[in-house]
Design a protein around this nucleic acid. Structure first.
Lengths: 217, 217
DNA sequence: AGTCAAGCTATCGTATACAAGATTGATGTT
DNA sequence: AACATCAATCTTGTATACGATAGCTTGACT
């Protein structure tokens, strides 16, 4: 399924960009990257195409490619959309979820809780992700699920910032439990609302998030 | 802004695929297309990257690229997501829309009505698109707007089929007027619901749509 | 001394050549 | 006669080379 070189390189570059190896606005040099990966410019250029489509970089006609700067406004917009998408997933999942999936959600939540107590934030993030992905899948709409995962992936580094706010992890856990309750009860409207609020970043949290962004630079 | 050759070719190919020049599952020959466009294989390949990202074609490792078959299930899923996205746009737009935009919506609706009376389905279709794009923009969320436009574009050919159902255009017009009323009143919940129902293809309409698809083959 | 223009350089975009893999057809064997 | 295997050809994936364009630097003129 993987289209060998260029796909691998695209993945690698995406990872490096998200991890901050390439800062926002930084120019990516085709030749340098080609040498670095031990390939010619062609696969690098193909990888660029993919990253452009994913919205990670910008290609200027005869200037070069640059890591896209995600401004505060766009970030807020993306979180707003993510919150709504998750709400949709939740509403559909509440109607369609299976008992097995509910059990898995409980299990993920338990592992989340364990990670929280052990102060293992990496584990917490992973299980938190499992929790959300389960809900996406339980929407019963594979297209929606794919879209949600795409956006989730894009917001990944920022979501991490969000969770670093003091006391957010504990609060997040409680919200997860409420969400599972709504799912189990089949209360789709409530579930949608809970998920929207869970993901939405509002009020003064914005400022922390933006400050975190600045600090990360 | 346009990256010369490959972008133009990608657009051309996309258009041809959507118009049915290349049937679903059909293989696209790099060499043949290169000759056809009077360029080498490189720009064609770059165009393929874009189309893959847009979900229009599939690239198999050493086999070639094929026009993606969109099955009935996936189509229904995509319409479900589109309906929800439009509902979100509508809810936000109801809170944020300007008077100028309301006037533009009215104008688009009037042109829609005129096209309906003149039985000019192409004009109707274009104005219908203007109407929806205005609402996307009035969500005040540029990211959401871009996502909505992307999905709208992908569903374009199928939406066209849907509108060809008997009496659908007249009904659609009436729904448009209700939507504007809700927007003007700032009734976000009602607007969201109206838009969701407007877009959703539900119940027996599915069968018409699928039957139309089958007939088109 | 400052500004504008011209030329140079660096990098992008495209073409072409080459390599590797997959498919299909033919031939040989059972 | 049918099936399997091997080879040849076609097509994709990668590399390299060349042409074009934009930005930068330098020099000349005001």
């Amino acid at each position: 399924m993987d289209r060998s070189r260029s796909d691998l390189i695209a993945e690698s570059l995406e990872d490096q960009i998200l991890r901050g190896r390439f800062g926002p606005g930084m120019r990516l040099d085709e030749t340098k990257l080609a040498e670095e990966h031990g390939v010619s410019r062609t696969p690098i250029r193909e990888a660029f195409q993919k990253l452009t489509a994913a919205g990670l970089i910008e290609q200027h006609p005869r200037r070069g490619v640059f890591v896209r700067e995600i401004g505060a406004v766009e970030l807020i917009e993306m979180f707003e959309v993510m919150a709504e998408i998750e709400a949709i997933c939740g509403r559909l999942a509440a109607l369609r979820i299976t008992d097995a999936a509910l059990a898995e959600l409980d299990a993920a939540n338990d592992r989340c809780h364990a990670a929280l107590e052990a102060d293992e934030s990496d584990d917490y993030y992973r299980e938190n992700e499992v929790f959300h992905h389960l809900i996406y899948a339980q929407s019963g709409n594979r297209f929606l699920c794919a879209e949600a995962e795409r956006l989730h992936r894009r917001l990944k580094p920022f979501r991490r910032l969000q969770l670093q706010l003091r006391g957010r992890m504990t609060q997040s856990m409680a919200e997860h439990r409420d969400i599972v309750l709504a799912l189990r009860a089949g209360d789709s409207d409530r579930c949608a609302r809970l998920l929207r609020d869970h993901v939405a970043v509002q009020g003064e949290k914005f400022h922390h998030l933006i400050a975190g962004l600045r600090a990360a630079e």
